[in-house]
Simulated assay, not measured.
Amino acid sequence: MHNAKTNASMTSLFFANVLYWVCAGVYSPFLSAHYTSLGLSAAQTGILLAATPVCALAIQPLWSTIADKLGRRRAVIVALCLAAAVLAPLYYLASTFVPVLLVTFAFSAFFSGLLPLSDSLVIELADRSGLDFSRIRMGGTIGYAIVVLIVGRLLDMAPQIQFTVVSAALVVFAAHMWRLPEAGIRANAADDPKVSHGKGLLSLFTSNEIAFVLVFAFISSAAIGFIGAFLGRYAVELGEGQNLVGVLSAVSAASEIPILLVSSKLVRRFGEMNLLIFSCFMAALRLVLVGTGIVPVMVCGQLLQSVSYMTVYYSCVTYIANHTYEDCRARGQSAFAMVQSGLSVVVANLFGGWACDALGTHAGFLAFALASTIAAVAALVAYVLWRRSAAPQPEGQAAA
């Protein structure tokens, strides 16, 4: 009976991850190509693609706070799904910059809150059932890889179906999440030492090292955000279509599977911080390879998704799950999402749009790779100095 219940929990949580990433896979990878088809410039595309991360910064914390305070993450997720599903078809009514911007802000205000809330709920339910989150997260990778391949081909033939499919996927995701159990905090948790009584971002966490976790996450995520923002536009400039975007996105997603199979072992062997630092340099290398514009080399670059994105994502969500107070788990994951899907993507889109307009897309990729490398080196030096200053000194040395 216990094994049957555990298997049922694994299946439900696995498909929760599948369905979120199906929604993301239908929507996000093809947006820049959609904007380009409307005749919008690279700078305008950058601004539009920055709308979602701006919402992640400005509005997402509201949803996480509501979910934590009410202890109703599942209900908030379902409400956000249904609101986004209603708003997605408004894209069909917008064809110039300002209307598209307004629709994107409206949709993103709800859609941007889904990932951190879903992650915090699924991670907690997995922990209660003794399940390995890396196996559950593999569902998202598989779902994303399959859907971007299928949708890339479909959009080449019928681009007008994109936002209808987005709405349908969100409704299915909402229905599945409603079937999951709730995971609110305990009613008697107010006096628990595992509950935060402070204010401010750092008060959500049990270690100040989180500041460096978020810095390294920002650097790698900005590099990957640049690729996500301008890969579709680059494909169009190279004379390719949505199919290439779908293939490259599927390759990157499929590369995550081997890492997810060993991610728990990697964290135990090297630690989250070492994996994050390594991932920053891999993200810079990925920018160089994708920026060549040579399809086989671009494929090799996308294979680095495994060690530039997934290592960051898994290290951060597990670090945060283990270093947040019980009543702050949704807000803890939201803080990571604000950096990964918010601030870093705003920087990538705005500066990336300017760089691509000023230098050309090829040179823009190389310039962003150089900036990412410099930032990673600076952050590494700062982290090493912080570790040395924070390390307890030997008694004799301290007395001296």
Rank of each mutant, 00 (worst) to 15 (best):
M1I: 07
N7W: 04
A8G: 05
S9H: 11
S9N: 15
S12A: 15
F14C: 04
T36K: 12
A43Y: 07
C55S: 11
P61R: 11
G71R: 05
R73H: 11
A85R: 05
P89I: 05
A94E: 03
T96K: 04
V98K: 03
F107V: 15
A109P: 00
F111R: 07
S120K: 09
V122D: 06
E124V: 00
S129P: 01
S134C: 07
A145W: 07
V147Q: 05
V148W: 04
V148L: 05
L149V: 00
I150Q: 01
M157G: 00
M157I: 13
Q162N: 10
F163C: 09
A169G: 11
L170E: 08
W178S: 07
P181W: 11
E182L: 06
A189N: 11
D192W: 07
P193E: 09
V195G: 01
S196L: 03
L201T: 13
L202S: 06
S203H: 03
N208A: 11
I210M: 15
A211G: 12
F218Y: 12
G225P: 08
F226P: 00
L238E: 09
E240T: 06
N243S: 14
V245Y: 04
G246M: 05
S252E: 12
I257D: 08
V262M: 12
S263M: 15
R268W: 01
M273V: 05
L276Q: 06
F278V: 07
S279H: 06
R286S: 05
R286L: 07
V295C: 02
C300K: 00
S306W: 00
S308A: 13
Y314H: 12
S315V: 03
C316R: 03
I320H: 10
A321S: 15
D327W: 00
D327I: 00
C328Q: 15
R331I: 01
G332M: 04
S334C: 12
F336W: 05
Q340G: 04
S344N: 08
V345P: 05
V346M: 07
L350I: 14
L350F: 05
H362E: 14
G364W: 03
A367D: 02
A367C: 02
F368K: 01
L370Y: 07
S372V: 12
I374G: 09
A375H: 09
A376G: 03
P392H: 10
E395S: 13
E395W: 02
A399V: 08
A399C: 02
